[in-house]
């Protein structure tokens, strides 16, 4: 699951690094805000636990075994902000102690496993719990769905990053993506199963350890105000959308090949999409042009980036508009 250095291009590494840095700084900021003197030992222990927990083997076949990733589990116990920080430190120590993963791809790894795993997983869990209720059943079902969705969302992001890292001319990404997505859906199922069993075990033994969803909502509401329920729904929706996009990405990349050929049959492609000069040379079709490179992954960006843009827009609108219904929890917390 770790991305090694050299798989992604430096530009993509820089971009994901910047996003991850922003997200982790925000988590640290929230952690400082909520700082009880207990936070630091608890978060440190959680990070150590995730690290040690990844040593527990889950056999699949004879030589192959899976292990926990842990973002959703960490968020369930210590909350999304501390969970994100703990997962980030786990990934950093894995690089610094064992050279697992890479230095420049640390940003991408943090984005996939810490940010999506903890923030996204937490949001998805709360979202699901809104329908099932805050009973133990609701928490377990929520975590299972959250674990699966967060892995699939990470897979979608990885496909996008991989696509942007390599020159898309002449390369058929659809098979690569199909392989990656099917591989990740196995990882996702494993993660969902492990997280679900572990959380239901903890709920059976020591239910007070799992962060109570109602109190989390209250704490969120007291910090952010009315927006938090909307924000968590939006984040959950975003993770779901990315998870769906993961399954569509192989089709999307074969689709844009299809689109290109359809356009060139219609004679439009020569005009303004690919930057080819019409009718100058027959053999010119074979030469990759930089603008043509843009066109080929435009569809992938349209798929995932479009979803992102819609959610950012919706979030901004939600910020601007007053909340339609007063939130009971926030009133209770405001006292």
């Amino acid at each position: 699951m770790h991305i090694q250095d050299g798989v992604l291009s430096p530009v993509v590494c820089a971009a994901t690094g910047a996003i991850a840095l922003g997200a982790v700084s925000y988590s640290v900021h929230r952690l400082k805000q909520s700082v009880a003197d207990r936070t630091i030992p608890l978060t440190g222990m959680m990070a150590a636990l995730v690290f040690a927990g990844q040593m527990v083997n889950f056999p699949i076949g004879a030589p192959v075994s899976g292990h926990l990733l842990g973002g959703v589990l960490a968020a369930a116990v210590v909350g999304p902000w501390a969970g994100c920080v703990a997962m980030t430190l786990v990934l950093f120590v894995q690089w610094a102690l064992f050279s697992d993963g890479g230095l420049f791809s640390l940003g991408a790894n943090v984005l996939h496993m810490a940010v999506i795993g903890s923030w996204g997983g937490h949001a998805v869990r709360l979202f699901v719990q809104r329908f099932i209720g805050d009973s133990h059943k609701g928490i377990v079902i929520g975590s299972v769905i959250a674990a699966w969705a967060s892995v699939m969302a990470a897979a979608a992001l990885f496909c996008l990053e991989f696509r942007m890292s390599w020159p898309p001319s002449e390369i058929d990404f659809s098979k690569v993506f199909t392989l990656m997505v099917s591989f990740h859906s196995l990882i996702g199922l494993g993660e969902a199963l492990i997280t679900g069993i572990a959380i239901s075990f903890v709920l059976n033994q020591r239910p007070e350890l799992v962060a109570d969803a109602a109190s989390v909502r209250q704490a969120d509401a007291s910090c952010v105000g009315h927006g938090s329920a909307i924000t968590s729904t939006l984040v959950a929706g975003l993770v779901f959308a990315l998870a769906v996009a993961a399954f569509l990405s192989p089709f999307a990349s074969s689709f844009d090949d299809g689109l290109e050929s359809a356009l060139s049959q219609m004679g439009i492609a020569d005009f303004n999409l690919t930057g080819r000069v019409p009718g100058v040379l027959e053999g010119y079709e074979k030469v990759p042009v930089p603008i043509a490179a843009w066109q080929t992954f435009a569809v992938s960006i349209a798929g995932i980036g479009g979803t992102l843009a819609v959610f950012v827009l919706a979030w901004l609108l939600g910020k601007a508009l007053p909340a339609a219904t007063p939130n009971l929890n926030s009133e209770a917390a405001g006292e």
Partner: peptide, 27 residues
């Protein structure tokens, strides 16, 4: 195997959090 491994994980989690409480007390 999976069930017992996940239970192992849960048990380790409980022990770790208890340890965090004790460490916090000591701190």
């Amino acid at each position: 195997t999976w069930r017992s491994a996940a239970h192992l994980l849960g048990r380790l989690l409980i022990r770790a959090l208890d340890r965090a409480d004790r460490i916090h007390g000591a701190m």
